[in-house]
Amino acid sequence: MTQISAPNSDPKKRRRQDRWFIIAMMAPYLALLGFFGIAPVVYAIGLSFMDTIDWVFWGFTNYEFVLNDFRLIEAIQNVFTYVAIWLTMMVVGIAGLSLMLDALPDRTASVLRTSFFLPGAITSSAIVILWLFLLDPAVSPYGALFEALGWENRRQVVSHFGYPVVFALMAYLAYSGGWIVVIGGALKGISKEVVEAAHVDGANQFQIATRVKLPMVWRSLALMAILSFANGIQMFVEPQLMSLAGSTYSRPDWSVNQLAFQYAFNLGDFGASAAMSTMLLGVAIFISLCVVFGTRFYKMD
């Protein structure tokens, strides 16, 4: 009887082997996380309590300096206005477009999906350049519309839209295509029987989309929202690149991350920059955790 023993019949031994296997699989990731994730954060936190010229401990001086900067409140308002507009556009726009595409015949849907994806192939820095043209009544395809509204130059167009709306439009164009593909994939994963059953029960396309499909992909949408949020509050490229259009549009301290950059590379104050970055990271982690636990994101149904 005892001859037919499998190589790992001892459950304890097997679990130990599994654990080593898991560690081996995760090692490359952990190494990268340590070197490029945790180490810089620890370094920045350390730096934020130092005077970086004489290397003496400064306590909370850097934090005080940053929190007293008049631009901080403005930058926070700017970034949150932008994130609110952009996230709303992303969630409503992408959920809507994806659900509509899913209701179309496959071939039409994939052609449309590709065309939605195309603008996303341009990186956000290039998008800024593109928009600088779109917003100039003299060269924009919407020039006639702007002129009808009485906006005769780019400065007026930008100031009437407001920077948050302009940046939200830029970011929506840059990121929406990729997420439409992802959510489209999630919708494809819904079993046909469920949809057919709903159909048989008398649900119309709209009800199927909102009552059946949407609740089944909300987790993908939430993931998109979390990632976009983390991305959005760290915005830097778009306002920074506005200076390409000339000093009239230059906003070197529009976003919180730009302020951190200004401290380090304009004032040469790396301690203050580290303090700002540390606080920004803290906020991003806190809000992400709130969303993850608030929505019980990882809970399996």
Binding site: P137, N153, R155
Partner: peptide, 9 residues
């Protein structure tokens, strides 16, 4: 002019 001296308009 409502435009800057280096702008295309």
């Amino acid at each position: 002019s409502p435009h800057g001296p280096f702008e295309p308009s």
